[in-house]
Simulated scan of single mutants.
Amino acid sequence: MKKLYIVFLLIFISSCDDGDLQIESLDFNDVDVQTCTAIDIAQANTLFKINDDEALILILEANVLTQEEGTITVNMTSSTSSTITYRIFSDTVTSDYFCDNIPPSSPTVLDEIIALEATIIITTTATGTVDVPEYEHYIELNSITLKTSNDERITDLSVDEFGTITTN
Rank of each mutant, 00 (worst) to 15 (best):
V93A: 09
I113D: 01
I122D: 01
T124P: 08
G70K: 13
S90K: 03
T83P: 05
N45A: 10
D131Q: 11
D52A: 13
E61Y: 12
N142T: 07
D96L: 10
I139P: 03
Y135P: 00
T123D: 07
S105C: 02
L116G: 11
V74E: 14
N150D: 15
A115G: 03
A42V: 09
A44S: 15
I59A: 10
E140M: 01
Q43A: 14
P107F: 01
I120E: 03
P133E: 14
N142C: 01
T145K: 14
A44C: 00
T123H: 11
V130I: 12
Y86E: 06
T83V: 12
Y97P: 01
T123C: 05
D40Y: 03
E68V: 14
E61R: 13
D40S: 11
E61V: 05
L56P: 03
F89H: 15
I84G: 07
N75W: 04
T145Q: 13
E117H: 02
P103R: 14
A55P: 09
V132K: 10
I102L: 12
G128V: 06
V93I: 15
L47W: 09
E117I: 00
S149M: 10
N101I: 11
S149A: 12
I102V: 15
L110M: 12
Y97F: 15
I113M: 01
D40P: 03
S106N: 11
T46Q: 13
F98Y: 10
N142M: 05
Y86S: 07
E134M: 08
S90T: 14
L56K: 08
R153V: 15
L146C: 05
T94M: 07
T92E: 14
A115S: 11
G70Q: 10
I84L: 15
T71N: 11
D53V: 02
E117T: 07
Y135L: 01
Q67P: 00
N150A: 04
R87A: 00
V93E: 14
E152W: 08
S82F: 04
D40T: 03
S106Y: 13
A115V: 06
T83S: 15
T73G: 03
N150C: 07
I57D: 03
T71C: 06
E54Q: 14
T80H: 05
T148L: 06
T92N: 10
F98P: 00
Y86W: 15
D40E: 11
S82T: 05
F48P: 05
T145A: 04
P103M: 06
A44T: 12
F89L: 11
I120Y: 08
T129P: 04
Y135V: 04
D100S: 09
S81K: 11
L146E: 13
S149E: 15
A118Y: 09
V93N: 12
D53A: 09
L47V: 04
L56I: 13
T85W: 07
A42F: 07
R87C: 04
I57K: 08
I59Q: 13
E134K: 10
E68N: 14
N63L: 05
T77H: 02
